[in-house]
Structure formats: structure tokens, C-alpha cells
Computed example of a mutant assay.
Amino acid sequence: MAKLGFGGGCHWCTEGVFQALRGVAQVDQGFVQAGAPADTWAEGVIVTFDPSVIGLATLSEVHLRTHSATRARSPRGKYRSAIYIFEDSQRHEAELVIARFAIESGKAVHTLVVPFRSFRASEERYQNYYRNDPNRPFCRRYIDPKLDFIRQHFSEVALPDART
């Protein structure tokens, strides 16, 4: 198993996105901290995955395509667009995915690749936000469209039902 962290917007959405993928064993939702300039706590998730089923490149591409990676944010803000690496060897591949996405989109991508430093879980009542009640208005409005996108564009790694 391997780990990566992702931050991009609301961690409820990010958690739901990664829970919808084959090969993802666990998604821990909360707040992530990295080194400067990303040394403040920001919403994010830690994804534990099986690289023989789903790779870093696919996870990173799903991430870039399911949040506003091209919207500039302060690296010190609560909603930092980032890929948090757990090993130095992950940096190059993550940066290649970002560069390819920037070329395809024709826009600057504001996603940082930074070393993971620390994690603090969200309150228990927010864990598994989508799975616990996918019919909440927030889930229907913001998470369901992302899951539909994954099923359409990443069908080879999409779970048929994100609530399982």
C-alpha cells in the first residue's frame, strides 16, 4: 500500500471522490499540513491505495479534474490545491501529471506538490460524509456531479456505487 494526500476544496467532496475509486483502501478526511509555503492547516484527505490497482498518476488526474485546480488560491489558505507526497520519489510523477493537465487545459494549474508533514482528522460526525447520507442537499449539489464525472471519464477505476 502507498499513501498520498490531496487538497483542493471542501474535504467532504475530496473524501467522496477518492472513496469512489477501485484500489483505494482508505480515505482519511481532515486537515493537512506541509512545509512552507503550505505550512498552515488546510482541508484535505490522506488516501491509502494499492498501486497495483490504481496509480499515482490516475489518482492525481482524478484530483485535478474534480476540483478547481486552475483557480489561484493562497497556499496558506484553508482550501489549498495540493498533492501531498509521502516519498520524494512521488514528486516527479505528480509534477508530470500537473504539467500534462496544464497543457490539455491551456491554463495555469495552481496545484502544489509538497511533502506531507502532519494530519489532523475532522470531527467524527463529518467522517464518511457522503457515504453516511448521500441525499443531503450538499452531496447532491456538489459531490454527485463529481462522481458522475468519474464514472463517465474514469470508468476503469470507478466503483459502481460510491456508498460502498
Rank of each mutant, 00 (worst) to 15 (best):
T66K: 01
P51T: 14
I103P: 01
V32G: 03
P134E: 05
V24L: 15
W12A: 12
C10E: 05
V32A: 07
A158P: 09
Y84D: 03
I98L: 01
Q19L: 15
D144Y: 13
E156K: 01
K107F: 00
Y84N: 04
S74P: 14
A102K: 03
S52I: 10
L96V: 09
R131V: 11
A25H: 15
E15L: 11
G30W: 13
K78I: 08
P37M: 12
G106E: 09
R71W: 05
V45F: 08
D161K: 04
C139F: 11
V45E: 01
H92C: 10
T58R: 01
D161Y: 03
C13K: 05
V62E: 02
T58H: 00
L96R: 09
M1C: 08
E123T: 00
G30F: 12
L4C: 11
V53H: 09
E61V: 06
I85G: 02
G106Y: 10
C139E: 06
L159S: 13
R71K: 04
P134G: 08
L96A: 08
V17R: 05
A25F: 15
G35Y: 09
Y79N: 04
S105F: 05
I150Y: 07
F6K: 15
V32H: 00
C13H: 01
T58E: 09
A36M: 07
D144M: 11
A102I: 00
P134K: 06
R125V: 04
H153K: 10
A121Q: 11
D161S: 00
A69F: 01
V27Y: 15
R141H: 02
D148T: 13
V113P: 06
E93P: 06
R125L: 01
R151L: 08
